[in-house]
Design a protein around this nucleic acid. Structure first.
Lengths: 206, 206, 206, 206
DNA sequence: CATGAATGAGGATTCATTCAT
DNA sequence: GATGAATGAATCCTCATTCAT
């Protein structure tokens, strides 16, 4: 695998080629969630996408690039979801904000549980480590900032960063692992409630 | 890769054999934590272990088996650690028990952070899914049982299982991710305190 | 690669077309001298020429054809140079004629040393063997004829053909190799003098 | 193709593997002289050698390495031939020494004309440029040294290096090209005589 | 037992060439 | 006439695994 991945080799101009790119990404996503990263081969991707391998390489410089794009797409979705909520979060009570945040996190993952899990948990071991680390850090940072903004409403703490780290990773992992091992939890309102409670009790004065 | 793995092809009788097996496992572990599961090839393992590939196949039916053994070893270690504490845990307050449990979990992972992380987080995407799922379930079950035993001391809950699931996954993930992204946390007492607090506040009244 | 190369698929009628063909040939030449025959791909040629690959195939039936045209162009240039001098050569002394011939040979190659070298030395191993052999033979024949015309002024010899062969190949190789390894020789008058001396001493009575 | 070639990946220990290496080199040589460097693929080499591709890669890190070894073998042979003669050359007249040198040069190439030609003329355009340039330079240097040693017996010259360059390249090219286009020349004593004459007249007084 | 050697199957990537608009 | 898109066939190379000594 080459070094700089993640850049598309050639921007698709026509509608036809944009569709091809989509098919490829979709195929990769499917394979990833069905057989895992081990079974993800360019030939398989191309076959599933219904295109020739060479076509795949017209838009992605190498396999890694596909994974990277997939990863970034997922991140974007999360970012967007977060951004969409963040304005309203300001106006709500912290408790309510937490509940909202947890719900939307679950929401994001509930759509395609295996895929998201594969992408977010598997990729770090397969894909560009940097990308993953930076991405995760970004989320932690966002939460840290949000917490600082309303620190007076929170339980006193020495390190905001550490607490944010714990909250983010705990929540994400719980959701990912649920997606993998207890998919039914993702649609169970009790799960969301419990998660929100976990976070709330950790962050707020009782 | 063959189908049934995880059984050693042949139990090593002599000391020499046992040493060979150890070298192999150690080599695999090293490679796993250094270059990740992608770079883990049988040839590389053999080379690092200082034996011929063919020798490797005298003790392991296939590559997967090595991973499985590695995984089980790690689990055993955790199980043992847990078992060792569990008797004493009975006699302590729940709060104290939690603190102990969290500490020992961190302890286990702190020894070889990258390795443990690789094994426990990466293997599920590479190795035998079943093994992993069963193992994780086992931990959740143990915690569930422990919680049931002292349910009256805990915050009322609808599903003990779900709460156990959340606690176990949250704690493990936090530790694993710390191992990967914030190794310094593993030796920071504040980290253990915070984690214990997270769990304590979630499980205990007020 | 198809079989019949070297024929242009379609003679360009309009000026625009002719320009396109020129761009293609120029691009091929550049790539050839920059990265060698190994890096010469149709896609790369097209890209460098600023046209689509498909356009390239409107004027050349296949890649080989491009190389062939390039080769022929180079030959033509040499032929022309030779023809241009040959009339005047008649009137000069053999010694002077040799000097002139050597100078113009160097001249031809000095213009774009790497290119000429690539074309004349690399192509035979990549391109149409026949074309190359015939071309070289043609030069040898021309020299043979020239020598026969003034055989009485030359050192006695058994085989004019063999001596012509030696002279032609020695001179060409020296120039090509100089182009590749000692480019500064090409502009050093001493080099021309020495080459002329080499030939003169071989062909002429002392 | 990777970067550092030419190093054998693994030294063959047993007789069997040494044979394998030989088969591979022989196969490569055959293909090279039959179809040229363009047709030289690792699969074809392996097939012709009667081994699996993977075996080939156990001894050569990549295709280039095979070419490099072939190239070096050829150079060694030339070096040896040269060394073998050089002692005796000292005792002979320059004229005789030249005759000897030319004869042995032809000798070396006459054994497997197409191969040698392929290797020495084709490789520079396919293989490691450095290797080739250094090798050629080595020969020129050796001749330069030899000429300096007996400079007083030679025709006066400004640059020994340039004259050596010319002689070496002229002779080699003539032989190579003869191998390719006039194989019969290689066994014709007249050819050797003429070549020796070419060199002798260039280097020696009147 | 141990090991150097060997390999079939496959994986990533490229290339000359064609097609549809 | 030109071009973006598409592709089948190859190419280099690796890997898990087996064999022969």
């Amino acid at each position: 695998m080459a070094k700089r991945a993640h850049e598309r080799r050639k921007e698709p101009r026509q509608a036809r080629s944009r569709a091809t790119v989509d098919y490829i990404l979709e195929a990769a996503a499917q394979i990833l969630s069905e057989v895992g990263s081990g079974g993800l081969t360019t030939n398989r991707i191309a076959e599933r996408a219904g295109v020739a391998v060479a076509s795949l390489y017209q838009y992605f410089p190498n396999k890694q690039a596909i994974l990277d794009v997939l990863f970034e797409m997922q991140l974007s979705e999360e970012r967007d979801e977060f951004a969409r909520r963040s304005t309203t979060l300001q106006e709500k009570s912290v408790r309510e904000a937490i509940r909202e945040a947890v719900r939307s996190a679950i929401e994001v993952h509930a759509r395609r549980p295996t895929l998201v899990r594969s992408i977010l948990r598997a990729l770090p071991f397969v894909g560009t480590r940097d990308l993953h680390v930076r991405a995760r850090q970004e989320v932690v940072d966002a939460v840290t900032t949000a917490m600082r903004a309303r620190e007076n409403e929170l339980r006193p703490m020495k390190s905001v960063a550490m607490r944010a780290f714990l909250v983010v990773h705990a929540v994400e992992a719980a959701i990912h692992d649920a997606a993998g091992e207890r998919p039914e939890y993702l649609t169970d309102p009790a799960f969301a409630d419990e998660l929100a409670e976990l976070v709330g009790r950790f962050l707020l004065e009782d």
